[in-house]
Design a protein around this nucleic acid. Structure first.
Length: 267
DNA sequence: ATGACTAGGTAGCCTAGA
């Protein structure tokens, strides 16, 4: 089973790139972030002939997440536990899909707030978002030593985990995306029982998932690893490999992010 | 210190992204 995550930076502006990715990579599941489309504007009909169904939750202009899956998507959830009504910013979607061997797998597409700046009100909201995600996964029995079913969370976390994940650790020290507090909060989420699947496959530095559009950052490989696939214990124990697919960042009119892909055997 | 790109919504080119 292949599961991918990709911050697409507008699904309508890049519907052809999503289509190309589905055709060329044939993932079983593609988790999208920053779709920037209301549900009524999401091009679900483009993916149907390719054999994919879609669950999405979006809004105009900003945010928006989706699950694109070869198998039907069931038990869709789009709010944190304990939420009073729908969140204004559409950043979270869960669904249950079936693996090629017919087993249920819980998947989640998440778009963690950027935080804007360390002194912005958006910054504590970013940290709170990560904690609420952890509370939701715990409340649903999806993390810990004996989770209810395999879980793969994919998304743009807007945090680089360590020095290998930033182009210049000295320049980035203490900055947004790489502050101690952000990294500690992300670590706390992982300590609930989630594994950074890419790091199961590679300990190499300088492998990034995002490059700024400006200053030829991609050509110069000045990027960050801020997009992750996370597996709970049941998912991680069947992981074959995970990698960053750099190629789509070089396609015409690309997203500033590139996909991360995990391949599971016997999931 | 600032801006460098890009998309979306709107008709203010500005907000937001990272």
């Amino acid at each position: 089973m292949h599961i991918a995550t990709w911050n697409i930076n507008s699904v309508r502006a890049r519907v052809d790139l999503v289509e190309r990715f589905l055709r060329e990579r044939s993932p079983d599941v593609l988790l999208l972030q920053e779709t920037k489309a209301k549900d009524s504007e999401f091009p679900i009909e483009t993916f149907l002939p390719l054999g994919y169904s879609t669950a999405r939750t979006g809004q105009a202009s900003y945010n928006g997440v989706a699950i694109i899956s070869r198998s039907p998507i069931e038990d869709v959830e789009t709010e944190f536990v304990g939420s009073e009504g729908p969140a204004e910013q559409r950043r979270l979607i869960f669904g249950t899909v079936k693996s090629p061997s017919g087993r249920p797998v819980r998947v989640c597409s998440v778009y963690v707030p950027n935080g804007k700046a360390l002194d912005s009100p958006a910054y504590p909201e970013k940290l709170a978002f990560l904690r609420r995600l952890g509370e939701t996964l715990s409340a649903r029995g999806l993390v810990g030593d004996s989770p209810l079913m395999p879980l793969v969370v994919g998304g743009d976390f807007n945090i680089a985990r360590d020095a290998r994940d930033v182009f210049d650790p000295v320049q980035m020290a203490g900055k947004l995306h790489f502050s101690e507090e952000e990294r500690t909060t992300f670590d706390a989420l992982l300590s609930l029982g989630l594994v950074d699947l890419f790091r199961e496959s590679s300990s190499e530095a300088g492998l990034f998932s995002w490059w700024d559009y400006r200053m030829q950052a991609f050509r110069r490989n000045r990027g960050l690893r801020i997009d992750y696939l996370l597996g709970n214990r049941l998912a991680t124990q069947t992981l074959d490999r995970a990698h960053i697919d750099r190629e789509p960042r070089g396609w015409t009119r690309p997203s500033d992010h590139t996909p991360v892909i995990a391949e599971f055997t016997n999931l």
